[in-house]
């Protein structure tokens, strides 16, 4: 094999390696652009639990959100990555609390848009005719509980 051909092959291999790394980085970026949502399901009933599953599927189905779940509001500090939006389905009241780090006007444009989508889906799932568990949807500017939990979760690194 002559030198020119060898050089050509080496450059082609290097170009392919650089391209694959680039694609990998782009892929990771696309994934990291997904809005991270923490769903806290404090309910204990079957209907309420099934409704949360339907709600989570609707969020995941948009392709915009990655979902994680807990069964109670965490009291310890978060050791992982914080979430963009926290949705709490409490056992004590027939509401769904949508919690963000601050009021909607303080959020980035992307997060504000994601919040709007979450609120719309939550409204549809919990206020619709076929809901298994009817609830009112409230945010940090609507009710005391979401506002208090916004501060609490922010302090502990969950938001």
């Amino acid at each position: 094999m002559n030198t020119q051909r060898r050089l050509f092959i080496t450059v082609a291999i290097l170009a392919l390696m650089i391209a694959s790394v680039g694609i990998g980085v782009l892929g990771e970026t696309a994934q990291s652009e997904q809005v991270r949502v923490l769903v806290i399901d404090e309910t204990h009933g079957i209907q309420s639990s099934l409704q949360i599953e339907l709600f989570a599927r609707a969020l995941v189905g948009t392709g915009t959100f990655s979902i994680h779940a807990l069964t109670e509001i965490p009291t310890e500090k978060n050791t992982g990555e914080p979430y963009d939006i926290v949705v709490i389905v409490p056992s004590i009241v027939e509401q769904v609390w949508i919690v963000t780090a601050g009021v909607p006007s303080q959020l980035t444009a992307q997060l504000a848009q994601a919040l709007h989508v979450v609120e719309s889906i939550t409204d549809k799932m919990y206020g619709g005719e076929h809901t298994l568990d009817p609830r009112a949807v409230v945010g940090v500017t609507d009710d005391l509980f979401p506002a208090v939990y916004s501060g609490f979760l922010l302090c502990n690194g969950w938001l």
């Binding site: 399901d41 009933g45 079957i46 639990s49 099934l50 599953e53 989570a56 599927r57 069964t71 298994l132």
Partner: peptide, 25 residues
């Protein structure tokens, strides 16, 4: 009673008082 919710990756123990609730609507 136990319920598995795949989208949340959660297996939940369900309140026994749920027995008078309607099954899946």
């Amino acid at each position: 009673m136990w319920l598995y919710l795949p989208s949340l990756g959660l297996t939940k123990h369900i309140d026994a008082n749920s027995k008078t609730q309607n099954f899946m609507g």
